[in-house]
Each structure stands twice: as structure tokens, then as C-alpha cells.
Design a protein around this nucleic acid. Sequence first.
DNA 1: CGCACAATTGAGAGTTATCAATTGCGGTGG
DNA 2: CCACCGCAATTGATAACTCTCAATTGTGCG
Lengths: 348, 348
Amino acid sequence: MKKILIIEDTYEVRDNIVEILSLSNYEVDEAENGIIGIEKAQTSPPDLILCDVMMPDLDGFGVLHILSKKPVTANIPFIFLTAKSEKADFRKGMNLGADDYITKPFDPHELLEVVEMRLKKNERKAAVQEKKGSLGLINESKGRRELQELIANREVRTFRKRDAIYKENELPRQLYYLQSGKVKTFRTNDFGKTYITHIYNAGDFLGYQALIKNTPYHESAVAMENCRVALIPKKDFLPLLANSRHLSNQFIKLLAQNIEEHEEQLLSLAYSSIRKRVAQALLKLNEQSRNSGQANISILRDDFASMVGTAKESVIRTLAEFKTEGLIEVDNGLITVIDQDKLYKIPC
Amino acid sequence: MKKILIIEDTYEVRDNIVEILSLSNYEVDEAENGIIGIEKAQTSPPDLILCDVMMPDLDGFGVLHILSKKPVTANIPFIFLTAKSEKADFRKGMNLGADDYITKPFDPHELLEVVEMRLKKNERKAAVQEKKGSLGLINESKGRRELQELIANREVRTFRKRDAIYKENELPRQLYYLQSGKVKTFRTNDFGKTYITHIYNAGDFLGYQALIKNTPYHESAVAMENCRVALIPKKDFLPLLANSRHLSNQFIKLLAQNIEEHEEQLLSLAYSSIRKRVAQALLKLNEQSRNSGQANISILRDDFASMVGTAKESVIRTLAEFKTEGLIEVDNGLITVIDQDKLYKIPC
DNA sequence: CGCACAATTGAGAGTTATCAATTGCGGTGG
DNA sequence: CCACCGCAATTGATAACTCTCAATTGTGCG
């Protein structure tokens, strides 16, 4: 049975759609706003998403943008619901990669037709990619299916802020899939100093590197806020990885992406001033916050320093500079980026 | 027809073996010392290697040690030839991962028997791994075979010192396999400063990251000395990568290894003094030099600085310190590491 | 011999780390 | 309701490290 997720803030509309789809024998999941929608999509990925455009906090464009960045949710057919059939909106949505557009009010028939069509099309796409698999590296639809199976029905554990998820030198026993929350991984110096190698957000996999190499962890992972994490046992993951081209392609892409980010960081760590590095970290954190639907950045100054590779005091001083220059605002420790552009252009 | 490589410095013995094997219908390749042997093994990998233990410059242990580090040659059955049947030698060789041991003088029969046995065993190993492929990630023998096919019979291009192999922002058109020579890849700052992300030696693949991600190069590759490079066109590599579990596993391992190295570097770049970083770079370079059979390190001070992420002058000063402390010797720019252990233990 | 390039040395300026002290905030027990 | 505690954030002053610029030496080569 196909599962469909509906993200729509007005109860009446949502309820109406649920009814129509349920009657047609779809499994239906609903979310009353974008944030919850994202969480549900990541926790238990559906086969298709119907999403309202106009919603408070996080609008439909935001939802699509965020979901399209995570491998698990990237290839789920995404259909916008919109009250007005404005051309500009239509184009914006389609350019973001939406698959279709339904204008409200709609006729039940119309809805069902569109949904069915998109589901069929997605299956065909998978089949076609399957056939010509030897031409391109990535079979995305098929790969997504396998990722979804990987995370489906797993034991879920919750971690509280500061809890360790795994520690350096431990042997990996499972792959982690972060359903909600934020996790940092860091390496530690002989002298106890710590460098954050990654910050993971909802929808990310975690700990795959040690698992793949079959070596102990070379880093520790700690929850930065309360987290829900699905556990995929090693014995389920590794065979699947070894046997599935699609899955291994997904992880190859992940690894290659990691390398690129690290090289970027190496270059900047080698030659950029603290000022520049703090600016880069701010932009990165801001991006991540926005991808979780938050407007400001919440991070301990110690963690910030460990990201930038410097002392806490230096970070604070630089943030103070940025504040007086009007690039950011700080309120009770929470940082709000005001002028992305100027931050980006900081020289050195 | 199976190909066998013989590495043996005394002409008579070598010739004798060549004759025995040729008569038994093996294709035979010969090398008169360890360095040439390594080069031949990497340029045109055989199915089995016979290698003398006692040789000038680079002995058999060294050859095995070096070949076992490169994916292409790591799983080729390796048999030692030795004059004396000393137990210590036998153990040392086997512990290094040799597959068998033949003491000279030997009887033609004996030689053929051992060779045949090892070839058979290697085939069986591949078959077994094939069957239980779902249990482990890496099918090494099969993977090697595919790697060998990948590099066999390719167009080979030579680059002279300082020649660019590829440049930042270019689109990748092929995978490179370095048959001989040394290549650096580096990223460049807005301000023209350069950070070396990797140094590749004979037997390494090069440029796979951009190829896999199908994006332009984010780094440039330049020959540090004269190089021979085999070109594997994109259209040959990518389909094979997508369809071969073994090959993709090899590259996953490569990528994961890269990440680990980069994280190491990030940590040290963030918090270690120049002194420490120079020491680490020296150890790394020394390792690489020894793996190419050279006793001392040859590197431009500018390149050294770009590895360490500092100014040329700072590197030079630090090297001068090490020299007065007796940790290294410098002769006409060539650096020789004297005290590995102390270099390793430099604090900070 | 002189050129080009690489390596080295010297001196001063600038950046950043470190140590120490202070402030701010939320919670808690009296 | 308030003083107090603990933790995080902030500020200040100083020392240490490293970069930069400039000058000099060394080396191979035509």
C-alpha cells in the first residue's frame, strides 16, 4: 500500500484530502505544518508528498528545499497545493524541483489522477534507470527505495543533550540515522583540544565511515540537543551495502561530498584569518539552522570554537566585531545573521 | 595465459626460472631489482610474483611491503625466493603477508608445483569470496582482478615535472592511474595561496573524486617529477564502477581512507604548532619516499609549505631547528630523516 | 661568468592563544 | 522573594607564535 504524506495547515483542507485518499486505499499520514512535515518525512518516508505552499513559519518551498537535500527524501515525488494559480508561484515551485502542482479548490477526481500519475511515473523512472543503469552512476529512485527500507522499522533510541552516541576507539556496531535533533562529531587532540569534523541534522546518516572501513571510530559523536536516532545494525547494513549498487552509490556520493567539504576546510584553516573562518562557520550554521526551520543559530561558544579551530575567546571577540558592524545580532547567546552577503565577502 | 613476474638480481637464477616457467606456458616478465620490479608490477600487474629476498637497494621484504599497500597489487600472490632457509627470514616474510617461500636451490618441479598451487588457491579464494559476498564488504581477489582490467591496455601519457595533469574547474574526462612518478593535488585560495591536499605516488589512482561526483575538479593536479600516467576514459570507468560491487567497494575504501587522513590533518592544522605539523609532514613524506625505494626526501620548500599550510620561511626555519637537534640531515635540499621516533614524539 | 631559481637568514609587525577576572543568567533552597 | 551557586559568555592584558618583506647565499646551467 502506497503511503502519502500531506502537509497542510488548514484542518478542513487536510481532512478533506485525507478522506479522498483513504477511500482510494492509500495509507495517509498528515502534518499540520512544515516543520512537522519534514520530521515525518524523515522519520518514516512516504511514497509521495502533497504539500501546501502557503504556511506559517516554513512554507512549502522551504519544505521542498530542505527535503531535496537529504538522500532519503530527495526523490520522493512532491506535489504542491496552492490556492492561487499564479504563474510565478508555479514556476518557482517547479524550478525547485516539484513534480506537479494542484490548485485549490480541486475536484477529488483531479487529485487522485495527479497522485496516481506521479506514483506511476516514479516507478517507471526507477525501471528505466534500472535498465540503463550502466550509463549513469546513480539510480536515484531505486536508491531511495533502498535507503527507505534501510531505515524502516528500526529500533529508535533517544539521546539527551550531551549524551554520547559513540566514542573514539569503540568498534562500530551499527549505522545511525538521525530522525530529529543535532549531533556533532569531533576528534580530540593529545592535549584535549577538540575539532568538530561534522554537524549532523535530522535526515542525516551517521557513523558510516568507521562501519565501512570496519575500524574503530576515530571520532566521538555527541548529541547537541535531544535526539531521536534510528539504529541500523551492522549485519543489516554491510551486506546491503556490498550487494546494492544503488546503496553503495549513495554512500560513495556521501563520502565524496565529505571529502570536498573537508578540503575546503583545510584550505581555510591553513590560510584564512579567524575572522574569515568565523564568518564561514556562521554561514554554514545559518544554512543548517534554516534547514531545520529555525531563524537563529544556537550553539555553545565552545562548540563554535571547536568548529573554527580556535580558542573560545577569539570566537567571542570576532562575533562582537560582527555585531558592531551590523552583520549579525546576538540575543542571549542566540545568533541571528543579518547580512549574509557581507559575511560571505569578508576577505583574507 | 597467466602472467608471472620474477624479481631477482642474479641473472643466472632469473634466467633459469624464466625458462622453467616459459616452458610450462606461463607468460613471464622479469625485473633485475626491487625498484624495477615494483614499477613493472604496477604498470602491468601479473597474476603472481616471485621475488628474491636478498637484493641490493630494496630487498624482497621492501618490495612486498610496498606492493601490499596499493589496491592494484595488494592481492597478487607473492612468493619469496631465498638462498638460506633461515627460520627468522621465513617468519618475517610470512608475517609481512607473503603467500609462500621457496629456498634456492630448488628443483624445477618444486617451483612449478608451488606456483600452480598458489595460482589455484587464489582463484578459489576469489570464488569463495564471491559466494559469501553478502557477508563481508570487500571481495579482495575479485576486486583486484577488476582493478587490473581497468588499467590494462590503456593509453599512457607522460608528463614532465611541473606539467598540469588537470586543472581546477575543468570537467573530468578520465580516471588517471599513476604508473610512475609523483603528483600533487592542491586547492587554491582567493589570494593565490595553495594547499596540497594529496601527494600521489606510483600505483595510485587520481582524480576519481570529481569523476564520481560528476562535477568539475575542485583542485589542480601537477606532476612533481616526470610521470607516466595511464588514462581510463570516463565512459569505461563509470559504468564499471556502477555495476561492480567489487570496484565500488575498492573506491569506497579509498574515499573513506581519504576522509580519515583529512580529518587528521584538520585537527593538526587547527591546534598544532608549525613545529609539530612540519614533523608530521616529514614522517609522511619519509614514508612515501621509502615506499618508492628512496632513502631521502626530495621536495621543494614551497611545496612543503603548501602541505603544512604555512609560509615557506617558517618551514625552512623549522627544518633548520630539526637539523641542529639531530633529527634530520639536509644535504643540498634533500632531507634525510635520522630520528623518526623523536619526530613522532614532538609535542604540541 | 652571469643568470635564474631555490634556499636561507634577519628583523619587525600582526594575529592569536593564554591566563585571569568579571558579568550574566537560570535555577534552587532558605 | 532573595541570596547563592554553577555554568556560559564576555572582557582585558600579556606573551608567544608566525607571517611578511627584504636581503643574502647557494646551485646548476648555458
